[in-house]
Nucleic acid binder design. Sequence first.
DNA 1: GAGTGGTCTAGACCACGGT
DNA 2: CCGTGGTCTAGACCACTCC
Lengths: 239, 239
Amino acid sequence: MDKKESLSQHLIDTLTYQILNELRPNDRLPSERELMAQFHVSRTTVRNALDKLELSGLIIRRHGKGTFVTNRSESLTNLADLFSFSKTMSILGRTPSDKIIKFKRISADEELIQRLKLKDNLNVYEVDRIRLADNKPMMFGKSFLPAGIFTNLDRQTLEEHSMYQTFENEYGVQIKEADESCRASILNEKIANLLYEKVGAPCLRLERTTLDKQGRAIEYTISWARADEFNYRVKHLYR
Amino acid sequence: MDKKESLSQHLIDTLTYQILNELRPNDRLPSERELMAQFHVSRTTVRNALDKLELSGLIIRRHGKGTFVTNRSESLTNLADLFSFSKTMSILGRTPSDKIIKFKRISADEELIQRLKLKDNLNVYEVDRIRLADNKPMMFGKSFLPAGIFTNLDRQTLEEHSMYQTFENEYGVQIKEADESCRASILNEKIANLLYEKVGAPCLRLERTTLDKQGRAIEYTISWARADEFNYRVKHLYR
DNA sequence: GAGTGGTCTAGACCACGGT
DNA sequence: CCGTGGTCTAGACCACTCC
């Protein structure tokens, strides 16, 4: 077992694997007391892990009855939760890939300086990507990465590994959170062509700012996603 | 203090009030140990409450430094988190109102039966509303409510109280969670007219299924929101 | 009554940030 | 060094569901 991984993260990973590969919708999970015994952890740790799985929509808990695997067949079209594009596509059984069409070191304008909270080094890398599932273009994304954090970033690394992998493995940057917003928009000519869509077709315009554990803004990405393929899902829990 | 309210919910409400009314962005909150003493609760309870506030985007925690009020001025346009439309508008300093333009008891079709998990009683109430902020139409929503749960629902009650208030106060229905999805679409003629928009203008199409604590589907709502006014925000926390 | 999830306590030790 | 948040333990009692 990975020593760096927390007990609850290990529980999350193990249960996620079981839910996706060994269990079926509406199956009951072991009770919280049973999980305590199986994993040799306290109830707090078990509940913490189940909280995360519930938020991500994999399970649902019923007071007095038990914890059950969610029926996700309805959301077959798509879901974007705490998963990245590639992870989401994998869960849906589609093969994700990226095509980088631009990689450039630029100087940040006012808006970027503010969004990435840049101080001294105003250089950023711009990475434009087409993101595909089963070789079909699904979305187009422009990412801006501070050169002060990702020094000497090169195109080849990004082509061979996922962006978040590169952040963690090459630069030791650990993601803490991402703030995402989405609004409806329409495709301009350039992006419509990249996605094989019509100019003026509706699309989702997503913006994401990602923070690492030190609270630094490490990424600002703006994406345009096909309206027919993208259904953005969120779960809200009350109380 | 309300006896029915849990300790952590009381903490959430108190801190939310302070954050919105007495504190400013980037202000530091009392440390978790200080909150324990102030509210006479355990650390678990404090952390539980802070978890919720962090998820809803009101605070941000920094390891080794403290807990701080989030700068929400950037999100002035809009946010929809664990808040309802009316609550969200209030936080943004706008006055929300609803105009019911249709109230009808109908028989559910196949899709509705599935979405609301109807068994015996296939009757549902359909409520169509225009939702306004400062008297400007922001979105149009069609809600479907099972007549088996909301017996003898009447239009006047809905016109005088919010839907969720009615659920809880008139029928004792407590909300547990809402599953929401959004995708981009374009306005048809009927809805465009209601929102004073152009036919074919981009819009966000939101779908929401709400479950109560017993796991019953109590509401299925589909809404169309103006693309220029609606910016749907989500925060993802990792680990 | 037995078993489930929901809430809470009173501790402990660790990792991080600043002095 | 101290104070911060992050993780975890080993309990307790409550509320709900089903028999």
